[in-house]
């Protein structure tokens, strides 16, 4: 039925998963940095962070990816003074992570705000350092508040990976199009792709439910 293209499509799905996974890791880091920026003591840093986040969230994802893909190499080359290659995969991960991070910083921000300030004060009074307070008091609790929001963003991220086919990555979407170009069966292959995405998103949702239960087990 798939005229020999199924292995290729599964290979594409594998690349999609890798992309999503690396983007998630980097995106979480970006998100934490973005949240920290919004809590900064300096107004200028707060302003710049918010401007940056609003810009990323306001532009179409495709546009952000294009800007990173074409602009990234140009910028890095300019900064380094000699040619540096930013591969499609890295551009894709970077772009997706920036988008994820921009939204995640909002999630983190409200999650940290949800941790009562009195706890930090108490910890401070006990002589804990700022880093200790962050690591041992704020982060574990904020994490629990942030999980549902991050779960939704992960689903968005998984679906956004489809856009990297437009910057030349051999992901699920790209492989689907390649298969269609020889078999001329658009419905069959796009529907198969849709089902694979459905499997990925549903599986994620199940995992998220488990994760959520784990994070909240002390409340049960």
């Amino acid at each position: 039925m798939f005229e020999g293209y199924l292995p290729q499509i599964l290979a594409g799905a594998w690349l999609t998963m890798q992309l999503a996974f690396f983007s998630l890791l980097l995106g979480l880091v970006f998100g934490l940095i973005g949240a920290a920026g919004q809590f900064s003591r300096y107004r200028i840093i707060r302003r710049i962070t918010i401007l940056f986040i609003t810009s990323i969230c306001g532009m179409p994802e495709l546009l952000v990816l294009f800007i990173i893909y074409f602009g990234g190499t140009a910028l890095v080359t300019y900064l380094a003074g000699h040619y540096v290659d930013v591969s499609s995969f890295v551009s894709g991960v970077l772009g997706l992570a920036l988008i994820f991070g921009a939204y995640a910083s909002q999630v983190f921000r409200s999650a940290f705000l949800a941790v009562p300030f009195g706890q930090s004060e108490a910890a401070h009074a006990l002589g804990l350092s700022r880093w200790q307070i962050f690591k041992n008091i704020q982060l574990p609790q904020a994490w629990r508040h942030a999980l549902p929001g991050l779960g939704n963003l992960w689903l968005v991220l998984l679906k956004d990976t489809a856009l990297v086919s437009l910057i030349g990555l051999a992901d699920l979407m790209n492989k689907t199009q390649v298969a269609i170009s020889t078999t001329q069966k658009p419905f069959l292959f796009y529907f198969t792709a849709a089902l694979i995405y459905l499997v990925l998103t549903s599986f994620s949702q199940i995992c998220m439910k488990k994760l959520n239960m784990g994070a909240n087990r002390h409340l049960a």
Partner: peptide, 10 residues
């Protein structure tokens, strides 16, 4: 992971 990514970049 970050280091890996950076290495890939440069």
């Amino acid at each position: 992971c970050l280091a890996l990514l950076l290495c890939a970049t440069i």
